[in-house]
């Protein structure tokens, strides 16, 4: 059965985190004081003939990344290699969509560091879309934000409740 989480994006479409991607991220939920923050990049599809975006998989902490209880540093190199590999394998249809990380709180909110980092990503990263998506996995909820490459405004997305059935 397919389950996932859906949000409304600003283009009138849906931003969906697919089941597989969700399972990958939830494996790093900080539901125990001993668990360190984790993160990676979001990979997925801009669905043809629609405004929908689907996250199919994510990268997970890799060598070179640094993890502590409240911080995560993602070293570009290994994650970039994964982006390149999937992009090539999929004949350019599986794309970099943004990033994710965990928070040790039930309903995650974005920290100042997070917002600053996302704006920096919108400015410095190269990507072929108008928006990037940022996901924070809390101990209960998963929240998502959309950032606009031109205005660099970051907007939290509204989730659609009954998708998971």
């Amino acid at each position: 059965m397919s389950s996932g989480i859906c949000f409304c994006n600003s283009q009138g479409g849906l931003f969906k985190i697919g089941e597989n991607a969700l399972l990958q991220m939830r494996a790093y939920v900080q539901d125990d004081p001993g668990k360190a923050e984790a993160g990676g990049v979001l990979l997925g599809r801009f669905i043809v003939d629609s405004a929908d975006i689907v996250v199919d998989q994510v990268t997970i902490p890799m060598p070179g990344d640094k993890r502590s209880r409240h911080r995560f540093f993602r070293e570009a190199k290994n994650h970039q290699a994964m982006i390149d590999r999937r992009w090539n394998q999929s004949k350019h249809r599986c794309n970099y969509l943004g990033g994710w990380h965990t928070h040790p709180e039930p309903n995650p909110t974005a920290s100042k560091t997070d917002i600053r980092d996302w704006k920096r990503a919108l400015r410095q990263n190269q990507f072929d879309s108008e928006t990037l998506y940022f996901v924070i996995v809390g101990t209960q909820e998963v929240s998502a934000w959309e950032g606009n490459r031109h205005t660099r405004l970051i907007k939290e997305l509204m989730s659609i409740p009954d998708q998971e059935n």
Binding site: E37, G39, V41, G44, R45, F46, I47, V48, R71, F72, F73, R74, E75, A76, H79, Q80, I83, D84, W87, S90, K91, H92, R93, C94, N95, Y96, G99, H101, S111, T113, D114, D117, R120, A121, Q124, N125, Q126, F127, D128, S129
Partner: peptide, 14 residues
């Protein structure tokens, strides 16, 4: 999925 151009990311802090 629609075909899109390449992406280049930078390192990130959260």
């Amino acid at each position: 999925g629609a075909k899109r151009g390449p992406a280049i990311i930078t390192s990130s802090h959260s």
